[in-house]
Design a protein around this nucleic acid. Structure first.
Length: 337
DNA sequence: TTCATTTGACCGTA
DNA sequence: TACGGTCAAATGAA
């Protein structure tokens, strides 16, 4: 399946490639078909299952911490049974850590997503889209669409194979070159370049080139685990705690499929437009996005006055409803305290 | 033993 | 000629 953006540099047809292809062919000849498929299945599982499981575990941990916090809050404010302040702080810290872990697991896109929605254009001159598409010239001379993303993690749900690293002139951090692991198996031409932001080393600037064709193979689709489904828990209009507002792995309905862009999104981006958000799409909807460097995440907090989760990400408070409601009916959102 | 990563070298472009 | 992108042998990890 060809995509204009997938055209590979013509150097790949050099004699060197013949040498490399020979090695690859040898490797293939030595391995049985069964082993290859097992390996393939393992890799595909690695692509999403661990993140899924980790997300679920962290969400569980967060629920437990939230209950603990609630229990502590029910303790009398004074008297013999009063909760030590440090314990409350500890519970808060656990919640924050869980939030950040979840954010990291899903590309930490929600902060940018939420802020992109709430943020007013006059907030800061340095606002730049976290994602952009433009045409650039590749080394081979051809042009291709690329997508640029800012993320707090290099993980995007795909399995990448690093094939190079280069110190970039005038840049403090090297640029890492990745191609899809399934380039040889499925001819997937997706590539990406990852470089740490100089302004904020915790932020990765990721350039995507080409389109993932590996994820379209029927056999892989059949082997791959169930798509990452968002479960916000049962409707809790009665206010009963029923689960985390964070996504978790669930076979229930409620899967929301986002529109696709010109490039293949990662499975998680496809399956998880809600809650954790998709920085690419959301940022494309808005013209400006706040600088990631100035954002600080904290736990969403329950506002009993109007029954909403409020999320302070450093740009003033953002209503959790605003993030979730963008994609999914609020009835799906299980609010918890 | 297999596979992924590292890293120096090579090549094309500006 | 400088720079960026890619290759592929060497190396290390599982």
């Amino acid at each position: 399946m060809g995509h204009p953006a997938c055209s590979f540099p013509h150097r790949l047809q050099s004699p060197k490639i013949g040498k490399r292809q020979k090695k690859i062919d040898q490797t293939r000849a030595s391995g049985s078909e069964v082993r290859a498929r097992e390996s393939q299945g393992r890799r595909m599982a690695m692509a999403s299952a661990p993140a899924c499981a980790a997300s679920e575990l962290v969400a569980k941990g967060r629920r437990s911490a939230a209950f603990l916090q609630a229990m502590l809050g029910q303790q009398p404010a004074s008297g013999a049974g009063a909760t030590p302040h440090g314990v409350q702080d500890l519970a808060d810290e656990i919640l924050r850590c869980c939030d950040r872990a979840l954010a990291a697991l899903h590309g930490a896109t929600v902060a940018a997503a939420g802020s992109a929605k709430k943020r007013k254009p006059e907030h800061g001159p340095a606002a730049t889209p976290a994602t952009s598409s433009k045409r650039i010239r590749l080394s081979g001379g051809e042009r291709a669409i690329r997508r640029v993303e800012k993320k707090w993690t290099m993980e995007d749900g795909f399995i990448w194979r690093k094939y190079g690293q280069k110190d970039i002139h005038g840049s403090k951090y090297p640029r890492l070159y990745f191609r899809c692991t399934y380039k040889e198996d499925h001819g997937c031409m997706a590539r990406r370049q990852v470089q740490q932001s100089e302004a904020d080393p915790s932020v990765y600037l990721i350039n995507y080139f080409g389109e993932h064709t590996c994820c379209r193979d029927d056999d892989i689709v059949a082997e791959s685990p169930a798509p990452f489904v968002i479960n916000f828990g049962a409707s809790t209009r009665d206010g009963q705690p029923s689960g985390s507002p964070w996504p978790s792995c669930n076979e229930d309905d409620g899967q929301v499929v986002s529109e696709t862009s010109d490039l293949c999104h990662s499975p998680e981006e496809k399956e998880l437009p809600a809650c954790m958000g998709n920085v690419a799409e959301l940022s494309e909807q808005s013209t400006t996005v706040p600088e990631l460097t100035s954002m600080s995440m904290s736990s969403p907090e329950w506002d009993p006055s109007d029954g909403r989760l409020v999320w302070d990400i450093g740009f003033g408070e953002i209503l959790f409803d605003d993030i979730i409601g963008e994609f999914t009916p609020l009835d799906y959102v299980g609010l918890f305290q």
